[in-house]
Computed example of a mutant assay.
Amino acid sequence: MSAHYYGLCQRHMGRAVEIRTLDGRIHRGIINRVTNNRVFLQPLGRRRGLGGFGYGGWGWGGFGAGIAFGAIASLAVLSLFFW
């Protein structure tokens, strides 16, 4: 299943997505970077530039929240009208 989400994330790089993880958490953001085992999201909305995630402005090392492919339960591409 991880290879499936890796391919989806690669195809939708730069697009707004909603990722639900196996523990029930929901992450919304723009796919900024994809590695072999993680996808990195730039957060959407008003909290975008406030730097709440740690080092590098709005995310770890400037890439945003990293989510492991093994933890992804579902991925949906968001339309522009959603946010």
Rank of each mutant, 00 (worst) to 15 (best):
M1G: 12
S2Q: 14
A3S: 12
A3T: 15
A3Y: 02
H4E: 03
H4I: 06
Y5A: 03
Y5M: 10
Y6P: 00
L8E: 06
L8G: 01
L8Q: 14
C9F: 10
C9T: 06
Q10G: 00
R11Y: 09
R11E: 14
H12S: 08
H12P: 00
M13L: 15
M13N: 14
G14V: 04
G14Q: 09
G14S: 10
G14L: 05
A16M: 07
A16R: 06
A16C: 13
A16H: 07
V17G: 05
V17T: 01
E18C: 07
I19A: 00
R20S: 12
R20D: 01
T21H: 03
L22D: 09
L22M: 12
L22N: 10
L22K: 12
L22W: 10
G24P: 01
I26R: 15
H27R: 07
H27V: 02
H27P: 01
R28Y: 02
G29C: 06
G29M: 00
I31C: 06
N32D: 12
N32F: 04
N32Y: 09
N32C: 10
N32S: 14
R33C: 09
V34L: 08
V34S: 08
V34G: 05
V34C: 13
N36S: 12
N36G: 05
N37L: 04
N37T: 13
N37A: 10
R38Q: 08
R38G: 01
V39I: 11
F40V: 00
L41G: 04
L41E: 03
Q42D: 12
Q42F: 00
P43V: 04
L44P: 00
L44N: 02
L44A: 06
G45P: 09
R46G: 00
R46L: 12
R47F: 11
R47W: 10
R48T: 02
R48L: 14
R48Y: 11
G49S: 14
F53V: 14
F53N: 07
G54H: 02
G54Q: 05
G54V: 03
Y55W: 09
Y55M: 00
Y55T: 15
G56W: 08
G57I: 12
G57Y: 06
W58K: 01
W58C: 03
G59L: 08
G59R: 03
G59I: 09
W60Y: 05
W60A: 13
G61K: 14
G62I: 03
F63V: 11
F63L: 09
F63Y: 15
G64L: 05
F69H: 08
G70E: 12
G70V: 12
A71N: 14
A71E: 11
I72Q: 04
I72K: 04
S74Y: 01
S74C: 05
L75M: 15
L75P: 05
A76P: 00
A76K: 14
A76W: 07
A76M: 07
V77R: 06
L78V: 01
L78R: 10
S79P: 13
S79H: 11
S79G: 15
L80T: 10
F81H: 02
F81G: 00
W83M: 07
W83F: 12
